[in-house]
Design a binder for these strands. Sequence first.
DNA 1: GTTATAGGTTTACAATCGTAAACGATTAAA
DNA 2: TTTAATCGTTTACGATTGTAAACCTATAAC
Lengths: 145, 145
Amino acid sequence: MAGNFQITDAEWEVMRVVWTLNQATSKDIADILWTKKNWKQATTKTLIGRLVHKGLLNTEKDGNRYQYRAAVNKSEGIKLFETKLLGRVCNKDIGKVIASIMAEATLSHDDITLLEEALQEKKNEAVDEVRCGCVKGQCLCKTVN
Amino acid sequence: MAGNFQITDAEWEVMRVVWTLNQATSKDIADILWTKKNWKQATTKTLIGRLVHKGLLNTEKDGNRYQYRAAVNKSEGIKLFETKLLGRVCNKDIGKVIASIMAEATLSHDDITLLEEALQEKKNEAVDEVRCGCVKGQCLCKTVN
DNA sequence: GTTATAGGTTTACAATCGTAAACGATTAAA
DNA sequence: TTTAATCGTTTACGATTGTAAACCTATAAC
């Protein structure tokens, strides 16, 4: 089931609501997205329909309407997007990308602690040199021209 | 000039080549993307055209053809995508997102060092609690009935 | 000089995306 | 019970994306 799905920006707004409420009706979702994005209910309905179709939302009948639930959890969804970011850069640059994200993020002391631990973890499996997986011409690891 | 541009997946492939070669002809790019993606030259040409149109590639005449150069540098491009990722989650979750990326990345000892330093930096500006900027209903920071 | 070739520009075209109205069925209100 | 509000489904429609062929022009080869 996991795999090759993708969540567009607009669909993501819907998923966030469902992830948060855990279970929601189209009205629940529409109300929130009206507040946030001024989307007409019709717009939200379309997005819900597409997500159901894609198998990203499950439905459970509840009278004349549905309760929607996420078919993929939030971490999976986020991870999918993380992977997309990492897929855009050379493996060797990922460290720098992480540093860059860190730089532009506001972090709490707890976050710092969390990351320090995570980093500590990574030390065990750190390599001397990350392997570049790029084709020649898409990163400088390979000699160009 | 910086701002509201966006680079699609396919366009990104072109940008990576230009960022790498620093300057390239359409043939340079097409050859590389043929190797990597089996794209016909026509496809690459279309992408180049769109990027020029968007102002993401600059042209410099060179005989009967152009030398293309990136109008935004790689870091900017990557940062744009990072921002997009961060925009999808609650500010409070960014620490966890970073940890998650770290977890799925292969890092070198040097990367670890770099990140340790970056983290150290962040300590100075770390806050007690990150402010959630979400609307109610899109993250659990706000009480949801 | 005529022709083949390479490079840029135009046109194409289906799929996806963002945004929404219209429609039909059903339930709740009057 | 007639009506109004609600909910899901269908249809709409322009913009963007992925993928490419066709075309036109200027060089390069003969």
